[in-house]
């Protein structure tokens, strides 16, 4: 019984269609623009920036946060959030680490060690799968709001890691593990290959499977998806499982780089950075491009590395990036406000 907003009709025209196409890609273009500008800026100002060495080192650093951001974004896409991602990665690493320390015999040969390593990775993935399942049950079946459920499980999973390790760092892993965290394949860091592969995999999951389609619909309007015969509970369960497994991969990457596992890696900022990346990539329930997440991760890394060089020799230079991220985020919000009008709602 209302007069429909006639302005909507504008999108019915052909020009409206072209416009909406451009709009659909404008986020990606905008982000890519920011990335290019930053990249050029640092390449010009810093001699060491555009070198194989620095590019490779970026390739080693960014996948951890990158994979964690994928884990975060798929939950935001369904209208939820997963605060437990980092706790999950640490728990996966701790359990896999304990598995290696406890079970690999001292006199084990090369082949045997590789076998055990495979086992350890399976343990990590299994832990991620189980913790994701638990999140999914709480959210999908018990009906706890995602922010509360994962806040609680974040504490629980960290608690398990602390409990099992007594708060200490688990070390003494076979050196073969470092393949995952510190080696390259054809000059490309292995963690980066993993990140790219998982980005593509996530993209396929979200945009090219029935499951991903349902997850996006659910994010848009959970009541309507329910009434369309979508099993919301099971979709949510799978989304959080997927998130848990991706988190576990992050745990493996951290373990491979540091050759250790502890409850506290990244705890202060990784979760918030993962959310920040989703915000930067404009992931909202029902909509979001995995490519944007990928670019957002690159932006953060370029900023981080760039400022690190820019301020080399300055005390505490590595902290400038945190400041810069915050400022950049605010600037992007404001730019969006002017570009898109008042699309954000508080």
């Amino acid at each position: 019984m209302t007069i429909r907003d006639t302005s909507d009709k504008a999108t019915n025209s052909v020009s409206g269609r072209v416009l909406s196409r451009i709009r659909a890609h404008s986020d990606t273009l905008q982000l890519f623009g920011v990335l290019v500008v930053l990249f050029i800026f640092f390449s010009v100002t810093e001699d060491k920036f555009l070198t194989t060495r620095s590019i490779t080192s970026m390739g080693f650093q960014l996948p951890e946060l990158g994979v964690l951001s994928l884990a975060m974004m798929i939950t935001i896409l369904t209208g939820g959030i997963d605060l437990s991602v980092n706790a999950t990665s640490n728990m996966a690493a701790v359990l896999a680490g304990l598995f290696m320390v406890k079970f690999i015999p001292k006199e084990a040969g090369e082949a045997q060690i590789v076998l055990y390593l495979g086992g350890a990775l399976l343990v990590a993935l299994l832990v991620g799968w189980i913790s994701g399942t638990f999140n999914g049950l709480l959210i999908g079946y018990v009906g706890v709001p995602p922010i509360l459920a994962t806040l609680a499980t974040m504490t629980l999973y960290t608690g398990i890691s602390v409990g099992l390790t007594g708060g200490t760092t688990v070390t003494g892993f076979p050196k073969q593990l470092s393949v995952i965290g510190a080696q390259t394949l054809g000059g490309i860091p292995i963690p980066f290959i993993v990140f790219v592969a998982l980005t593509i995999l996530t993209h396929i999951f979200i945009y090219h499977t029935a499951f991903g389609f349902k997850a996006r619909m659910l994010g848009s309007n959970p009541t309507a998806s329910d009434f369309s015969g979508v099993n919301n509970r099971s979709v949510l369960l799978k989304v959080y499982m997927f998130s848990g497994v991706l988190s576990a991969v992050t745990g493996i990457l951290i373990m491979g780089r540091t050759m250790s596992a502890a409850y506290e890696y990244g705890t202060t900022t990784y979760v918030l950075l993962a959310i920040l990346i989703s915000v930067l990539a404009n992931i909202i329930p029902g909509f979001g491009r995995i490519l944007d997440v990928f670019i957002a991760v690159l932006i953060l890394q370029v900023l981080s590395t760039g400022f690190h060089m820019f301020l080399a020799g300055v005390r505490g230079s590595s902290f400038f990036k945190d400041f810069a991220w915050g400022v950049l985020l605010i600037l992007i919000f404001i730019a969006n406000y002017f570009i898109r009008g008042r699309r954000y709602q508080g």
């Binding site: 029935a210 848009s220 979508v230 909509f287």
Partner: peptide, 28 residues
């Protein structure tokens, strides 16, 4: 209860049959 207002009209229509619209590899 009926619509995904922000989503494309086409996707609104096929949401009930999405499970059938897959290839042999289970991709859409």
């Amino acid at each position: 209860e009926g619509l995904f207002l922000e989503q494309p009209i086409g996707d609104n229509v096929i949401v009930t049959l999405i499970d059938r619209l897959v290839t042999k590899l289970r991709l859409l």
